[in-house]
């Protein structure tokens, strides 16, 4: 009775996947809370939300949407490629996903810093003079895209960690649940953006 790690070694792919899905549900509802806040305030201040949304650049938003959709495809493909036992392609696809995520973040950085240099940030003097609806819109904009960006960073870290496992051959064609799970997480990030994009950039 000295093998104290024995219970931890028990492997259950299906169980790990259910666990990941449950975690994804909690993330969805985390954003769900913010979506409730958004929809209530949009309902109360339709005019102000309309005006404020025109401040955002649809082009940047569209580019970022395209980037995330493509990165979602590459990570999905990496799962197929590991099943085809193509380790090299898997790593390339995962690396591509991380690269696209980095581009997304750079875009986001320029977008945010542009807004901030125009004096639009929570608690700024310019914003305090604006209407209440606009204060709420930009408050929500920063909170929701900020929380989303945080999830991108976590997702990148997760994928990078799994990449290391692939390199070390610890993730292979018959044992890739963790790759699947990191993919699921990444799709979640995409899924949330699919709703954030029209709500902030399009509906003007």
């Amino acid at each position: 009775m000295s093998n104290y790690a024995h219970i931890d070694e028990h492997r259950d792919d299906e169980g790990a996947k259910i666990g990941m899905w449950l975690f994804i549900f909690t993330e969805l509802l985390l954003f769900g809370g913010l979506f409730i806040v958004y929809s209530v305030y949009r309902y109360i201040n339709p005019e102000a939300f309309h005006l404020a949304a025109e401040e955002l650049d649809t082009f940047t938003g569209t580019v970022n949407t395209v980037i995330l959709l493509v990165s979602s495809m590459t990570i999905a493909m990496s799962i197929s490629s590991i099943q085809y036992k193509n380790k090299k392609l898997t790593l390339i696809l995962m690396g591509l996903t991380i690269l696209l995520a980095a581009v997304f973040m750079v875009n986001k950085y320029f977008e945010w810093s542009g807004k901030i240099s125009h004096g639009i940030y929570p608690g700024s003097p310019t914003l305090m003079e604006a209407s209440q609806g606009e204060i709420l819109f930009f408050g929500l904009y920063y909170a929701m895209t900020g929380l989303h960006a945080l999830h991108i960073i976590i997702g990148v870290a997760f994928i990078a960690y799994v990449m290391r496992l692939v390199v070390k051959n610890e993730v292979q064609h018959d044992n890739f649940t963790i790759l699947e799970n990191s993919g699921l997480y990444w799709h979640l990030v995409d899924l949330i953006w699919i709703f954030l994009f029209p709500l902030f950039y399009l509906i003007t």
Partner: peptide, 10 residues
């Protein structure tokens, strides 16, 4: 000072 629930900020 984001103002989600502050009546003064809407």
């Amino acid at each position: 000072q984001i103002g989600f629930f502050d009546p003064a900020l809407g």
